[in-house]
Write a protein that binds this DNA or RNA. Structure first.
Lengths: 200, 200
DNA sequence: GAGGTAAGTTAACAGTGTTATCAAAAATAC
DNA sequence: GTATTTTTGATAACACTGTTAACTTACCTC
């Protein structure tokens, strides 16, 4: 009596159908536009069926988040295996991290909670330029005062800002509150390294 | 006949009342929970009144985004003024940037589109540990092979990851597509600086 | 006071996530 | 083969969301 096996197989098929449909919808319209109703429509079932396979919408998103981290880890691992020295491995991993994020934007946005507003609105905020102006002018002055005056200030500005934002947002994600002084240590460590390489 | 003046003053008051009420709601319940209806309820007006002052909900958020960037710029400026050499200014600015982000989490989250899911769910994703394991082991190996074997690998791991994530997410926000090779240059620049300071 | 303008309200539309209720189908028991 | 139970799925609703059309009311101008 393989009837029970068939049932759990069918159930599994429906589950993956839900995930496939959801993924397809995300690829075309993005996370913000994903809805239970659209998924139900795509798989040609009624809405409550989805709740037989996932507790709620967040559970579906969590599934993709998990998937994303697994894919990323695999990607980084093969990159690491392509090099021998640790230093070279770190560079390869960095490249792989970058490639993954851009080849799988949808995953990355979900994994790190990158909301929508930014990409569409933040660009047209003139108030932001006041901040970038302060940063670039300081970077320029530092370059002029250091031993790498020929370096690209715009590139260095981006590096500086990215380090800052990365530190902040990564630590905002991790709520397992490390003490503030340790967080600041990480900041100062990153900054001293950057400034050293900046000034030459 | 100051009647017209009174009218535009009242209109202005209502506008700020909307923003004040919205901000209060955000402080207590976060951005995700903010709704037009709650704002209308708080200011004791009907819903459409809000649309007389803001085109839509995004316009309200945009207002706060602008405000946030202005506050950040001012904060960074005073930090910069507190130091003389460019190198020291860059450090002070980094500190100020950090302080602002944590003293004004709501602003920062809005400004950079940091969604909610992360802080509540990402933490409990065991799949993430596979990735961190790869990174930390490589960092450890690099430290062992370099001239700073006594350095804190966990701190360095965090720095490494933050740089990567910062570069990715900042450049995802800026949709004015710089060519990919320039983006990669920024990445390599940041990485070479980090690795140099890592290996000593 | 009559006419016109602006302010503010009610009510609705089109969505969203989620769930209680119920019908039908399928598997089991007799 | 029929009856019973269990599972599967659908309908319909609830409580929200952003947004807007239509209407009333108050106010200012003439």
């Amino acid at each position: 009596m393989g009837v029970l096996e068939r049932k759990i197989r069918q159930k599994e098929e429906l589950r993956t159908a839900i995930l496939d449909a959801a993924w397809q919808l995300v690829l075309t319209d993005g996370w913000q536009s994903l809805s239970i109703r659209k998924i139900a429509d795509a798989i040609e079932y009624s809405i409550p069926v989805i709740y037989n396979h996932f507790e709620n919408k967040d559970a579906i998103l969590l599934e993709f988040t998990r998937e994303g981290f697994l894919k990323l880890a695999a990607h980084l691992m093969t990159a690491k295996d392509g090099a021998n020295t640790p230093a070279e491995q770190l560079e390869r991993i960095a490249d792989a991290y970058w490639d993954f994020a851009y080849a799988n934007k949808e995953y990355y946005q979900l994994m790190f909670g990158l909301g929508i507003p930014a990409c569409e609105t933040v660009n047209q905020i003139p108030e932001m330029q006041e901040m970038t102006r302060i940063l670039t002018s300081t970077i320029k002055a530092a370059l002029a005062a250091g031993n790498n005056p020929e370096a690209d200030y715009f590139l260095k500005f981006h590096t500086y800002w990215s380090i800052l934002h990365g530190l902040v947002s990564i630590q905002m994600i991790e709520k397992d509150g490390k003490p503030d002084d340790i967080k600041k240590m990480i900041l100062h460590d990153a900054m001293s390294g950057f400034i050293k390489s900046l000034m030459g």
